[in-house]
Amino acid sequence: MREREILLKITGVAAGLIAELNTTDLPIRTVEAADLLATTINQLPEELLQDALDAVHATIVE
């Protein structure tokens, strides 16, 4: 259970970071890495992503 909580926190922080990035200010390799991370996060079931965001008390505003 502890490992799940750690993974949820990592995922939640990563999702929050991706949501805040301004890709116009980043080198292309960084944008590509962020895109890979975002694509992977978006493959998560919505419920699991919400658990991850809840684990770090984050919200994603669309």
Rank of each mutant, 00 (worst) to 15 (best):
L53T: 01
A15G: 02
A15P: 01
D35G: 14
L49A: 06
A52L: 07
N42G: 12
L8H: 00
L36V: 12
R4A: 11
G12A: 08
A55Q: 02
E47C: 02
L7N: 10
E47Q: 11
V31I: 14
A15H: 07
E3D: 15
L49M: 12
I10R: 06
L8R: 00
T59F: 01
A19Q: 11
L8P: 04
E62L: 10
Q43H: 10
T39F: 01
A52M: 11
E5T: 05
L26W: 06
R2A: 14
N22D: 15
I10D: 01
M1E: 14
I60T: 05
Q50E: 14
L8M: 07
H57E: 13
T40N: 03
P27D: 15
T59A: 06
N42A: 15
A19F: 05
I10P: 02
V61H: 10
A52H: 10
T59S: 12
A34G: 13
T30V: 15
L48T: 10
D51M: 03
A15Q: 03
T24I: 06
T59G: 03
V13C: 06
L48C: 00
I41H: 04
V13S: 11
G12Y: 08
E20S: 15
D25P: 01
T59W: 01
E5G: 08
E62G: 06
L21G: 04
T40M: 02
L53Y: 02
T30H: 11
E32P: 00
I60H: 09
A52G: 00
L53A: 02
E20P: 10
E46M: 08
D35L: 09
N42V: 09
Q50S: 12
I28K: 15
E3I: 09
T11W: 09
A38E: 15
A34F: 07
M1S: 13
A14K: 01
V31P: 00
L8W: 02
L17M: 14
E47Y: 01
V61P: 00
A33T: 15
L49Q: 04
D35H: 13
D25S: 14
V56T: 08
D35R: 12
T39R: 10
E46Y: 07
T23S: 07
E3V: 07
R2N: 12
Q50Y: 10
R2M: 13
I10L: 12
T30F: 13
N42C: 08
G16P: 02
I6V: 14
L36K: 11
A55R: 05
A14V: 03
L48M: 08
A15L: 00
A19V: 09
D54T: 09
T40I: 07
E46Q: 13
N42P: 00
I10V: 11
